[in-house]
Simulated assay, not measured.
Amino acid sequence: MSLHTKTVPVVRESASRRAAPRADTALRNGRSAALATWLSSHDFPDIHSRGIDGITPLMLASLHGEDRVVATLLDEGARIAALDDEGNHALWYACLGGAPAPILRLVEAGIEIDHANDNDITCLMQAAASGRVEVMQLLLSLGASEGPSAPDGRNAFDMAADRGFELLRTVRRLGNAKQGSPGADSHCADAGRPAIEADVFADKAA
């Protein structure tokens, strides 16, 4: 009876293949260290802790437009659906800050884009009421719904229209004050309002 020894081929990894896992680990460790420094500088013990008004690290980073921190927090398991004391999540803060990158990242990560806070206000409504047209456009392009209404019955487009009228009246008041004719303010605003309303609601209908 003869015994045969099975030869097992030796697979040699290239230096680049062997180095890749170490490089990935080093990069991850570097990000974790940077995140730990960021958390400490903002008085957060960990990624799940809360600050004043229930704000989380993810909310604060989103507000400040710190997309790298947002990305690292999400990678480390930060709760994307966490709410502050008024029922707002991280997307609300990203929209307040206005930087596109955190908004895009949070929506891509699965945050609820049409979430309404404790006052039944969505992120789209908040952007509209604040006159943040660029944020409105971005949210709509990402699938935000214009349908939800606030307790007063207005939707986001109604709020945007009201904000537009308010800004227009302010500009006209400033212009009239500069010209020294305050009496013309109400006349100009009232005369221009019907035409502007027609334009706004024509755009909405389109």
Rank of each mutant, 00 (worst) to 15 (best):
26 A>Y: 00
26 A>H: 04
56 T>C: 06
58 L>E: 02
46 D>L: 03
39 L>T: 10
25 T>C: 00
38 W>E: 10
28 R>D: 00
57 P>D: 08
45 P>D: 11
30 G>P: 00
67 D>T: 14
62 S>I: 09
59 M>L: 09
40 S>I: 09
34 A>M: 08
68 R>V: 09
41 S>K: 11
22 R>N: 12
68 R>Y: 02
33 A>Y: 01
25 T>E: 01
17 R>N: 12
61 A>H: 03
58 L>C: 06
22 R>H: 15
45 P>F: 01
48 H>W: 04
43 D>C: 09
41 S>R: 12
66 E>A: 09
24 D>C: 01
40 S>R: 15
26 A>S: 13
50 R>C: 04
30 G>Q: 01
63 L>Q: 15
45 P>A: 12
20 A>W: 00
51 G>Q: 07
17 R>M: 10
70 V>F: 01
30 G>D: 00
67 D>N: 15
41 S>F: 08
67 D>C: 11
22 R>D: 12
33 A>D: 13
67 D>A: 14
36 A>R: 13
16 S>W: 05
38 W>S: 13
32 S>P: 00
22 R>K: 15
56 T>Q: 04
71 A>V: 07
64 H>N: 14
31 R>H: 11
72 T>R: 03
52 I>K: 15
33 A>E: 13
48 H>A: 14
39 L>G: 07
21 P>M: 15
50 R>N: 04
34 A>P: 04
43 D>L: 09
33 A>P: 04
17 R>G: 05
67 D>H: 06
27 L>A: 14
28 R>C: 00
43 D>G: 08
51 G>L: 04
25 T>N: 01
71 A>L: 05
63 L>E: 15
65 G>H: 13
40 S>H: 15
47 I>F: 02
21 P>W: 14
23 A>P: 02
71 A>F: 00
33 A>N: 10
21 P>Q: 15
50 R>S: 08
43 D>W: 03
52 I>E: 13
43 D>Y: 08
50 R>M: 07
19 A>K: 05
51 G>S: 13
56 T>L: 03
16 S>F: 06
26 A>E: 08
38 W>M: 10
73 L>M: 06
37 T>D: 13
65 G>S: 14
66 E>C: 07
16 S>K: 13
70 V>H: 02
25 T>A: 05
24 D>W: 00
24 D>E: 15
71 A>W: 00
54 G>P: 06
72 T>V: 08
54 G>D: 08
20 A>C: 02
39 L>P: 08
38 W>H: 12
61 A>L: 07
38 W>I: 10
47 I>T: 06
59 M>Q: 09
39 L>R: 05
69 V>R: 02
31 R>K: 13
18 R>T: 13
67 D>K: 08
71 A>E: 08
48 H>M: 09
58 L>W: 00
49 S>L: 04
48 H>D: 11
66 E>S: 10
31 R>A: 06
48 H>Q: 14
27 L>I: 06
33 A>Q: 12
18 R>G: 05
25 T>D: 00
44 F>N: 13
56 T>G: 05
63 L>T: 12
58 L>M: 06
43 D>M: 07
35 L>M: 08
62 S>K: 09
33 A>I: 05
55 I>N: 02
15 A>D: 15
47 I>E: 03
51 G>V: 04
56 T>F: 02
